[in-house]
Amino acid sequence: MFCDFLLALAFLTNFSLAVSGRINKVIQMAVFQGVLLGLMPIAMGLGRHFHILLMALAAIVVKGWLIPFLFRRAFKEAKIQREVDPYISYPASLILCALGTGLSLLMAQHLPLPPDTPHPLLLPASMATLFTGCLLLVSRKKAITQVVGYLVLENGIYLFGLLLVEEMPLLVETGILLDLFVGIFIMGIVIHHISAAFDSMDTHNLSKLKD
């Protein structure tokens, strides 16, 4: 029950990510979603496995504390304006996000799940989150919102990973989480260099190289 509640919240955060106009709001939403999904394994009743509990805690710490810290730092150093600056309007983003969610529900019906799957909403929620991540990646101008899109994309993959959480070894899970953290850390550094070189974080500036 609690599990379905969390998934419904994840769907709602997707919509609110699509319409948020303030950068810090978008970051907050993505972080909130990360923590939400970090709670999922416990809600699914997997808390009895020690290594799963450990991974859930690590995910919450990384996504709820370390990554927001990196974002805050990039945000402060970069002296950026507060608006998200999308290429498409917010209503259009919302409609696309809704379409993506609908498509995910449809697609999830066509992939065969084993008959005793306890959480049938998990698969569509994961696809919808993936879709939202992609939407943020391609429709926003600021480099930092693209990083948020990447984070949301990873949230979607994490959600799918919960289907197999009992089969992934601890080493691999740790590696995935560590790569996410280091990846965002390095993206933060590059953002710093972008704003130093161009005095703005707009990816418009990054179009000198072409044929």
Binding site: L137, M187, A197
Partner: peptide, 14 residues
């Protein structure tokens, strides 16, 4: 370490 290489790095990374 110049603007052009920042652009290339950003694209490669993202």
């Amino acid at each position: 370490h110049n603007p052009r290489s920042v652009e290339a790095t950003w694209k490669y990374l993202m």
